[in-house]
Nucleic acid binder design. Structure first.
Length: 574
RNA sequence: GCCGUCUUAGCACAAUUGGCAGUGCAAUUGAUUUGUAAUCAAUAGGUUGGAGGUUCGAGUCCUCUAGACGGCACCA
């Protein structure tokens, strides 16, 4: 994996062409779509006459090896618009691309190996010889050009390397990554569960609740320090409110509804309208701003069944939301403070992240371009001010405002949006909120939505994978495993356990019915950060012998020292 | 929602391609009192996700349905 990316891209792109060639040999009626490289391999989208299944991949691989048994040159040829249309006359997808490239005035080229040719801008390997160590990995449906209205093609995923060793290493790495899957560890460690009675509605188990509580306490502490006040707004509010907020018009398809008496109510998919009502409950002076209203809001959203995935994508989740109302002159500072706060939080968990600035959508947006530009500028300036690298996502903003999204990766390198900072130019207007300025005049405040974890559920999923279940002490559901060697040592074990409990630590005693080795194994498998063993030696010297999870070293210290160490580690939350 | 795959005991998986539903771990009971990753034995545990069909006979084949998984689309 030390290979430079360009070389791998060449190899993989050319492998994709061989894949396409093999497919056409085996399925002459198949129509090729596109076959680019991706981060860890390549894919090719192909329209098959008959659906193909997993087991066909082996057949295709075999055909690829057959094609590769002799080395062939890979040659580029520039073609005219007319020739391109002739070459691909049986392929509607390529024709569509040809038309488009032609309109854009782009050069049309094909790459050839033997009798196979494909419309492609390249670049490619010079010959097929290096293509040896590849594997077709999976099948998936994918809409042509990513549009649901188009045909669905069959996507074949694969990867390729320059040596068998690299390929094997990669496949092993993928297997290792799968072991960190939060669904697996969440089940093993009894953190959460799912039920077919509630698809997308996670159940938190006692161990999961400990993690949640710790996270929430951390979150509250942090927000108290940063000048936030806490609110809690209702889960269900009448339809009129959602008509006012614009959610009924813009977000209805993702909402759940219910009735009270004759009236229609919506289950909140976001907490903003509630926060607006809270703001409007009082008259506000310019002196009060910024007003920061934080809410752990449990929201429900109708998500497509195929989108659901463990804790990462659910239909009910808790946003660590906050709505900030401020004056225009306060905006820059507030965003800078927020960016620092987010960095503090992600650093706390050792989570690498990247930021994306999403700007005004092409057509579906509200508010004046002037305010949009100002808002985008404010967000961008704040990041620049701190020198944080970021990416721009043109046109990807919400219809009501631009946003900064904080993206984290899971164990399989999939990217999930967690934190977000959004400027809202919609709700202040719709709810007609104001503050009174120095001149005793009503002025419209600026409003920010923001969430750091994004969703507590998703964030816990990310944490599980990031730590592979080995939580830092303060988050670990069980913190200290106490193993009395034999019956006579149990009294001491109970004594130590109650002492730890008094200090709000979470000990668990493994009594002596089983052999010590067995209990050590249990403690290790439960990923308990510290395991202490109590036998005659420890009792005589009133010490404990501890072992850290994943480590073999046995350390003997006095009980007081041990407790002091635990408290320090926990309170520092590192 | 769409494409493909999967669903067998609490969990992980078998069942020789349609012929007596099994193994390991966990659980329960008993024996063992143990010094750093699995002590021994016994017991219990199932309408094979659900409904329908084909067949003398279905875990296995077919249809429908629910859920999960990998993608796509959508999104925190």
């Amino acid at each position: 994996m030390e290979l430079d990316n360009e070389a791998l891209r060449l190899l993989r792109h050319s492998t994709a062409h061989v894949l396409a060639e093999a497919v056409l040999k085996l399925y002459p009626e198949a129509k090729l779509g596109i076959g680019p490289t991706i981060e860890e391999g390549f894919y090719y989208d192909i329209k098959f006459d008959e659906p193909i299944v997993d087991t066909d991949l082996a057949k295709i691989e075999k055909e690829m090896h057959k094609l590769l048994s002799t080395n062939r040159k890979i040659e580029k040829e520039i073609v005219t618009y007319e020739k391109a249309k002739e070459l691909f006359k049986d392929n509607p997808y390529k024709l569509e691309l040809i038309e488009e490239y032609h309109k854009e005035g782009r050069e049309l080229s094909i790459y050839k190996q033997g009798s196979f040719y494909d419309l492609c801008a390249g670049p490619h390997l010079e010959e097929t010889k290096p293509i040896k160590y590849f594997k077709l990995l999976s099948l998936a449906g994918a809409y042509w050009r990513g549009d649901v209205k188009n045909d669905q093609l069959t996507r074949i995923y694969g990867t390729a390397f320059y040596s068998q060793e690299d390929l094997t290493n990669y496949l092993t790495l993928v297997e290792e990554r799968k072991k960190r899957d939060h669904r697996l560890i969440g089940k093993e460690m009894k953190i959460f569960m799912m039920s077919e009675y509630g698809p997308g509605f996670p159940f938190f188990l006692p161990n999961g609740m400990i993690i949640r509580d710790e996270l929430e306490n951390y979150w509250k502490e942090l927000h108290r320090k940063h000048g936030y006040e806490f609110i809690l707004t209702p889960t269900m509010l009448s339809k009129e409110l959602w008509l006012t907020s614009g959610h009924y018009a813009n977000y209805k398809d993702n909402m759940f509804f219910s009735h009270i008496d004759e009236k229609e109510f919506a289950i909140k998919p976001m907490s903003c309208p509630g926060a607006m009502l809270v703001y409007k409950n009082d008259l506000h002076s310019y002196r009060e701003l910024p007003i920061r209203l934080a809410e752990l809001g449990h929201v429900h959203r109708y998500e497509a069944s195929g989108a659901l995935s463990g804790l990462f994508r659910v239909r009910a989740f808790t946003q660590d939301d906050a709505h900030i109302f401020l004056r225009e002159d306060q905006l820059q500072d507030e965003i800078i403070t927020l960016l620092k706060l987010y960095d503090t939080v992600y650093k706390q968990f050792n989570l690498p992240y990247h930021i994306e600035l999403s700007t005004r959508p092409e057509d579906k947006y509200i508010g004046s371009i002037d305010i949009w530009n100002k808002s985008e500028h404010a967000l961008e300036e704040a990041i620049k001010h701190l020198g944080i690298p970021y990416k721009i996502n043109p046109g990807d903003g919400a219809f009501y405002g631009p946003k900064l999204d904080f993206k984290l990766k899971d164990s399989m390198n999939r990217i999930w949006q967690c934190g977000t900072i959004q400027l809202d130019m919609n709700l202040p207007e719709r709810f007609d909120i104001t503050y009174i300025d120095q001149n005793n005049e009503k002025v419209r405040p600026i409003m920010l939505h923001r969430a750091i974890f994004g969703s507590i559920e998703r964030f816990i999923g990310i944490l599980i994978e990031n730590y592979a279940g080995h939580f830092p002490l303060w988050l670990a559901p069980e913190q200290v495993a106490i193993l009395p060697v034999a019956k006579p040592h149990e009294e001491k074990a109970i004594e130590i356990a109650s002492k730890l409990k008094e200090l709000n630590l979470r000990p668990v005693i493994f009594t002596s019915e089983e052999k010590l080795g067995y209990r050590m194994r249990q403690a290790q498998m439960r990923k308990i950060p510290y395991t202490i063993v109590l036998g005659d030696e420890e009792l005589n010297s009133s010490s404990v012998t501890y072992r850290k999870a994943m480590q073999k070293e046995q350390i003997n210290v006095s009980l007081d020292e041990f407790i002091a160490m635990l408290r320090k580690e926990r309170d520092e939350r590192s």
